[in-house]
Amino acid sequence: MADLAHEVRELVLRMGTTAHGTHVGGSLSAADVLTVLYHEVLRLRPEQPDWADRDWFVLSKGHASAALYAVLAQRGFIDRTELATYGAPGSRLAGHPLRRLPGVEFPTGSLGHGLSLASGVALGLRRTGRPGRAFALLGDGELQEGSVWEAAMNAGHHGLDNLVAVVDRNGLQISGSTEECVSLEPLGDRWRSFGWAVAEVDGHDLGALREVFAALPDSAGRPTVVLARTVKGRGVPLFEGKKKSHSVQLTPRLFQRALTGLNARRAR
């Protein structure tokens, strides 16, 4: 699993070398969560993306597309070679995910949409008696969108225990700290007050993430939010905890530095 997470990070950096760069910081912070979800948690059939009994995943923080494409490639939804086309004219790999890419349920990128979509899916699965669950990965800055709380209030009220929100709590948004921009804490209490079961976890501890997700649903009759404490740019010392890592185009030299840092961090 650690190898897979490492590879996700390396693939993100490679996509960052393409003409427009990519959202490196938020992709790296979500890398471990996505790795555990796609390799251990989500029930998927890559050869049959519309399998009726699958779990659904919505990347509400659509700008972390590079990390999503990396795990989709690892699971065989797309070919690894396609990753090199990221952002290029004619590619299926846009800066924010397109629905025509196998494995992508909804196009996302405008923040504040994903939890509503996943709630609708969860309701639909419940209504049609299917076993699948709906997962949405949200950014923490995204929680400043009011529509997130419309969705949270509604999902809590309707007791959607087949719905899981994961918050990539890296603490940074474009302008800096979330707490300095518009503060989110006490975040766990806020979700609890909306009727959600709350699990807090180190979002880079693969074992802890597995444990949390294995225990889902956390609470019968309630949706669960996993607050994954993460570090923006995690794994690449050059970017860790830096708001400038939000969107980066990596020159060959910068890429080498980043990759060296990534490998060194792993060797430690």
Partner: peptide, 10 residues
């Protein structure tokens, strides 16, 4: 959003 999600499930 909820309606879109419901429709996606058929």
């Amino acid at each position: 959003g909820v309606s879109a999600g419901l429709a996606a499930t058929g």
